[in-house]
Computed example of a mutant assay.
Amino acid sequence: MTTIELNPPPQEDDKEAAIIAGARKAFLAKGFDAASMDTVALMAGVSKRTVYNRFRSKEELFIAAIMDTCRRLLPVDIEAIEASLPPEEFIRQMARRFLRAILEPEAIALRRIATFEAGRTAHLGRAYLEHGPRWLVKTCAPILKRLAERGALRVDDAEGATWRLGALITEPLYTEVLLGDPPADIEAAVDAQIESGLSAFMRFYRA
């Protein structure tokens, strides 16, 4: 059985990758407000000037950290993998990898930071939404559209179907973890959530 292996996304250069990694560490360690460009530079092992040459503000760095996290969820050769697996198994493997990734402590912490900041600075919340969940939906919707064209699914609104799939394969497990009440056996909970959500999705969308 083919297993989906994911690769980190390419960056402009090694220093940019280091800066984004440093920014993520700074935000996770100190929160958005307390993290400074000096802290980012220190954690990235570069000069403050180097940080500013690539990113003009903490907001840009926060968006870059979100985008980097999301791009790591998708394989580089996704169309080849899609063609090599039966449609339902392909969706299952992608869903499992996605759910495990968003339940990682760093991903949960970034979501908490964005949710907190959205109440004070709305544009940061919108940035997280646009470069996180909405980007993933827009990127993954063509996959469901292709599966529909192959006759595996019955989908009229690919983006709407992607949102529904995301909800079915994540809830209530994601909210439980986000709010500090994870199950004792997280792997068993992930498997149960995926099978339950995928079963409901396929009942509605199977061709």
Rank of each mutant, 00 (worst) to 15 (best):
Lys145Cys: 00
Lys145Asp: 01
Leu147Gly: 04
Ala148Ile: 02
Ala148Thr: 15
Ala148Ser: 12
Ala148Glu: 04
Glu149Tyr: 02
Arg150Asn: 11
Gly151Val: 04
Gly151Trp: 01
Ala152Pro: 13
Ala152Asn: 09
Leu153Lys: 02
Leu153Gly: 01
Val155Gln: 12
Asp156Tyr: 04
Asp156Trp: 00
Asp157Gln: 00
Ala158Arg: 00
Ala158Asp: 07
Ala161Cys: 01
Ala161Asn: 05
Trp163Tyr: 09
Leu165Gln: 04
Gly166His: 05
Gly166Val: 01
Gly166Ala: 05
Ala167Tyr: 12
Ala167Glu: 13
Leu168Tyr: 02
Ile169Pro: 00
Ile169Trp: 00
Thr170Leu: 00
Thr170Asn: 07
Glu171Pro: 10
Glu171Met: 15
Glu171Phe: 14
Glu171His: 14
Pro172Leu: 11
Pro172Ala: 09
Pro172Phe: 04
Leu173Gly: 10
Leu173Cys: 08
Leu173Ala: 02
Tyr174Met: 06
Thr175Val: 08
Thr175Asn: 12
Glu176Trp: 14
Val177Leu: 03
Leu179Glu: 03
Gly180Ile: 10
Gly180Thr: 12
Asp181Arg: 15
Asp181Leu: 11
Pro182Cys: 09
Pro182Glu: 05
Pro183Gly: 07
Ala184Ile: 13
Ala184Pro: 05
Ala184Leu: 14
Ala184Ser: 14
Asp185Met: 01
Asp185Leu: 01
Asp185Arg: 01
Ile186Pro: 08
Ile186Trp: 00
Ile186Ala: 07
Ile186Cys: 01
Glu187Tyr: 11
Glu187Gln: 12
Glu187Pro: 05
Ala188Met: 08
Ala189Phe: 08
Ala189Asp: 06
Val190Asp: 13
Asp191Thr: 15
Asp191His: 11
Asp191Asn: 15
Ala192Gly: 07
Ala192Cys: 07
Gln193Met: 09
Gln193Ala: 14
Gln193Arg: 11
Ile194Ser: 03
Glu195Trp: 07
Glu195Lys: 09
Ser196Phe: 02
Gly197Glu: 06
Gly197Ile: 11
Gly197Ser: 12
Gly197Thr: 07
Gly197Phe: 01
Leu198Pro: 03
Ser199Cys: 10
Ser199Phe: 04
Ser199Ala: 15
Ala200Glu: 07
Phe201Val: 05
Phe201Ile: 06
Met202Tyr: 09
Arg203Leu: 11
Arg203Asn: 10
Phe204Ala: 15
Tyr205Trp: 02
Arg206Asp: 09
Arg206Gly: 14
Arg206Met: 08
